[in-house]
Nucleic acid binder design. Structure first.
Lengths: 207, 207
DNA sequence: GTCTTTCGCTACGACTCGTAGCGTAACTGG
DNA sequence: CCAGTTACGCTACGAGTCGTAGCGAAAGAC
């Protein structure tokens, strides 16, 4: 269907060039002024080639941005606190890139009225990155920092909750508050998530 | 400047009609297909009237959505936990409305490339709602649930952090994970924020 | 009444959209 | 080597939206 085994094959270089051109265009002109014709010209391909591969710019932008998120990693730093802080900083640095912040919010906005686009975002971005939370939790349990989850479904709900809190806070900080995710903020967010608001001012947690 | 004291005054009813028409259009056609001509037709005014009052649809949509956020309240429910949970649920219900979720994300996306629009969002929406966090914190301190902040600047940073976490988590849950902010989730988020991840599984917090 | 500003309306060039049609290029199977 | 099939670049098209300009009429201020 998408790739019958006869005829001229689609150029993989064109794919890469189009996605790169999309990211470049997002940086320079932003979302609302990004046009398919502009992307095609930057990529050195015909406009019709874009429409043969993507239904519209929403889907194109999702694919163009998705690869950025695969750069996130979870190195084992020895403690849950350090692991969380590392991911927070990485995610903050990622969202600091203009092509990521602009595109991500715009696409999410469109997805509120487009079920299929929402699924595309979930499968290509969100679900792929939940691996960070599950891996961090597993390590923390092995170290004895966290009790084992009472059941599989409760564990899944916890994963979703933590993911929403971490990703949501970083996104909100970066895009709405428009302030940087620096080392200090990452540290304070981590402490809040681990020990909570009531214990956050405990002495000995010196800044 | 904005209102010289001579000449025909601007019609306040037109203002209200335009903002209402904008919200209605957001619900029916969404952000990307919202046009100024469409809004003007719905409001029963001329297209030129819109351009006399707003520079473009970004600014128009910000103003149209801002009033929705003023509905948020912080009733004194006796405990910090109950207060937080109440705000989480209210904010979740607000973001469940299609005109709010679509418009908010789209405008934030545009704001990543528009400094003035970013300021408009901050002054008309974000800063206005930080009152909820500061009021909740003050009450909690009066009850003895939280220690007083070590200093004014630390208090401001804490307010910003909590606001980013709460608002970000609700937004992410609603728009990215696309799952409802129900009573159970609101309760679990509140517990996470207050007591932290390490204490969240403590016995006796029975669901 | 006179002055000033807003209003509704129409019209305009410029731009983008998504599609269709054409000839050519690339690769497959007989 | 030669059809068959698909992708490609290019051009052109009607449709829709943009933001602005110009006009006469309406609504208050003085």
């Amino acid at each position: 269907m998408h790739q019958g085994r006869t005829g001229r094959p689609r150029s993989p270089e064109a794919d890469a060039a189009i996605l790169a051109a999309t990211r470049q265009a997002l940086v320079e002109v932003g979302w609302s002024r990004l046009t398919m014709g502009d992307v095609a010209a930057r990529a050195g391909v015909a406009k019709t080639t874009l429409y043969r591969r993507w239904p519209g710019r929403n889907e194109l932008v999702v694919d163009a941005v998705a690869v950025l998120f695969d750069e996130l990693e979870l190195p084992d730093l020895g403690t849950l606190s350090a692991d969380v802080e590392s991911v927070v900083r990485q995610f903050g640095a990622l969202l600091d890139r203009p092509e990521a912040k602009t595109a991500l919010m715009a696409v999410i906005a469109e997805a509120t009225r487009d079920e299929e686009l929402r699924r595309r975002i979930r499968t290509t971005i969100v679900d792929r990155q939940k691996r960070l939370v599950t891996a961090g939790r597993r390590r923390a349990e092995e170290r004895g920092e966290l009790p084992p989850p009472p059941g599989p479904e409760a564990a899944a709900r916890d994963t979703d909750l933590v993911f929403d809190v971490v990703a949501g806070a970083v996104v909100h900080r970066t895009l709405v508050s428009a302030e940087p995710v620096d080392a200090d903020w990452a540290h304070r967010l981590t402490q809040l998530i681990l020990t909570g608001l009531t214990a956050q001012r405990a002495p000995g947690a010196g800044a």
